[in-house]
């Protein structure tokens, strides 16, 4: 599972399996040499993307599997997340506008930060829908300068 610099993991699209899967992927990536300063960014973007699959792609349909493939190179990481749930709205990556904080405590948002965080923390996002399958690719660049 954690061989070379290619890492594959598959789990069922439930909140608890996703939580365990995210922790496992994150630990494997660290063991494979993901720079420590990037590990937190990768973990949160990965978690938000996978949570979206669990909560939205499989909303109203029988949850199936989430497949994750990571390719780690010297100065970049690509994570491909696939599922067979509903497509993203409009078949494209949602914009990354953060939720407004509102003007009072009661108006404070309790959600709507997922795509904003993914946009903030990744270098590139690609989405493709084909043959009933969603494929979301997240790329993280970490040039030596950092």
């Amino acid at each position: 599972m954690c061989t070379g610099n290619c890492l594959d993991l598959q789990f069922s699209a439930t909140a608890s399996d996703a939580s365990a899967g995210i922790a496992q992927l994150s630990a494997c990536l660290k063991a494979q040499g993901l720079p420590a300063h990037k590990a937190g960014d990768v973990k949160i973007a990965l978690a938000e993307a996978i949570n979206n699959v669990v909560e939205h792609a499989y909303a109203g349909v029988t949850p199936a599997q989430v497949k994750v493939r990571c390719r780690l190179n010297q100065d970049w990481l690509e994570i491909l997340i696939s599922d067979t749930g509903n497509p993203l709205p409009g078949f494209r990556v949602p914009e990354g506008m953060p939720s407004a904080l509102g003007s009072s405590r009661d108006e404070l948002p309790e959600g709507g930060f997922g795509w904003f965080l993914i946009h903030e923390l990744t270098s590139d996002i690609r989405y493709e829908r084909s043959n009933g399958c969603n494929r979301l690719s997240l790329r993280f660049d970490f040039p030596d300068a950092e």
């Binding site: 978690a47 009661d106 309790e110 959600g111 930060f113």
Partner: peptide, 20 residues
């Protein structure tokens, strides 16, 4: 050591349910 946006939302909700 880790929080995601759902966890963040839960802390916001916890703050709201404390009352004003």
């Amino acid at each position: 050591e880790f929080i995601d946006s759902s966890g963040l939302g839960a802390i916001v909700a916890a703050m709201k349910q404390l009352g004003s």
